[in-house]
């Protein structure tokens, strides 16, 4: 198996049967040293500047695990997950509508995507929040009737604003994914007697996922950051809590740093998750799965210790 060949094994451990190894003086890249030096100097200057600034760094660890911050982190994550769920489900539905042979459904999907991609999400959030000015009541005839303002809670506003906007982006991602699946796959499934729905669910979508997952991972990370906008429609999440604490404790800038640190932690964790999800959907697409980071580390360790044995 070609996969077993250890590419990291250098010429050092090949038995000395061939011609002698080349010993040459490597080219010196003076330009690289210079740019590295400049970069380090600039970085140092920035760090020094922040060190000199009147920033009360202690405030950051003091409040890092504050109850309000933790609640905010939880709500940010919740909002991210729920909005993405709405976005993904809506995106798949829109993508299927867009690709359908029915011109009406296709046109509706096109219009939806056109509208929601073409307007800023912040504007959409305000529109949802303030629809009470236009509709006094929400009236789902037999089931539910209430004032718009008490129906449209900040959470619902945030979810609709973020989720419906996301669906438009996900629709384009899903459409590209569905189109990337070979037509022969649909044909083979139909020839086996599978219905359109089953073919889509069992054959086409799982293969489309390989194309859909990487950009969706980016969307999740984007969504996590975009949730900070919903403080504008009175939904309290990480950014809003950090702001509140900043105003009360008199350390507003510090609290922004704190929020930034939490966002960084969350996006980093999501990136790792994304790697594993991508790996899962890559199964069958290449002869062997790419190693997990842990497997990579272990592979390097074992290849060090067993060099002589494998050579």
């Amino acid at each position: 198996m070609t996969a077993d060949i250890d590419k990291t094994a250098g010429p050092k451990d090949t038995p000395p049967t061939g011609p002698p190894a080349i010993k040459a003086i490597p080219v010196r890249h003076y330009g690289r040293y210079l740019t590295a030096l400049i970069a380090i100097a600039v970085l140092g200057a920035i760090i020094y500047a922040f060190g000199q600034g009147r920033i009360n760094w202690h405030a950051v660890p003091d409040y890092f695990f504050d109850d309000r911050i933790m609640t905010g982190v939880g709500k940010t994550l919740l909002l991210t997950v729920l909005s993405m769920l709405i976005g993904i489900v809506g995106g798949i539905v829109l993508a299927v509508m867009r690709l359908s042979k029915n011109p009406v459904t296709s046109a509706i999907a096109w219009f939806y995507i056109w509208f929601f991609r073409g307007t800023p999400v912040l504007v959409q959030l305000f529109v949802w929040f303030n629809l009470g000015l236009v509709f006094e009541y929400i009236n789902l005839m037999p089931f539910y009737k209430d004032y718009w303002s008490s129906f449209m809670t900040p959470l619902l506003t945030a979810l609709l604003g973020l989720g419906l906007n996301e669906a438009a982006y996900m629709a384009e991602i899903c459409r590209a994914g569905l189109l990337a699946v070979d037509e022969g796959q649909t044909e083979a499934a139909h020839a086996l007697g599978m219905s359109h729905g089953k073919t889509l669910r069992r054959i086409v979508i799982p293969q489309a996922m390989r194309v859909i997952v990487p950009p969706t991972g980016n969307e999740v990370i984007n969504m996590l950051k975009t949730t900070s906008l919903v403080s504008a429609v009175q939904f309290a999440e990480l950014f809003r809590y950090a702001q509140d604490i900043g105003q009360v404790s008199g350390a507003p800038v510090e609290m922004y740093f704190l929020a930034a640190a939490w966002y960084l932690i969350m996006t980093s964790v999501l990136s790792v998750g994304q790697y594993y999800v991508e790996r899962y959907y890559a199964r069958g697409s290449s002869r062997s799965l790419p190693p997990t980071p842990w497997q990579k580390v272990r592979g390097h360790l074992t290849s060090f210790s067993s060099r002589k044995v494998t050579a």
Binding site: D182, G184, Q185, E187, A188, A189, H190, A191, L192, G193, I203, P206, Q207, Y281, R283, G284, S285
Partner: peptide, 16 residues
Amino acid sequence: RRDIGMVFQRFNLFPH
């Protein structure tokens, strides 16, 4: 179609 099997030039196995 359940009663009719079809084999394609390019196999069309489900790769996943």
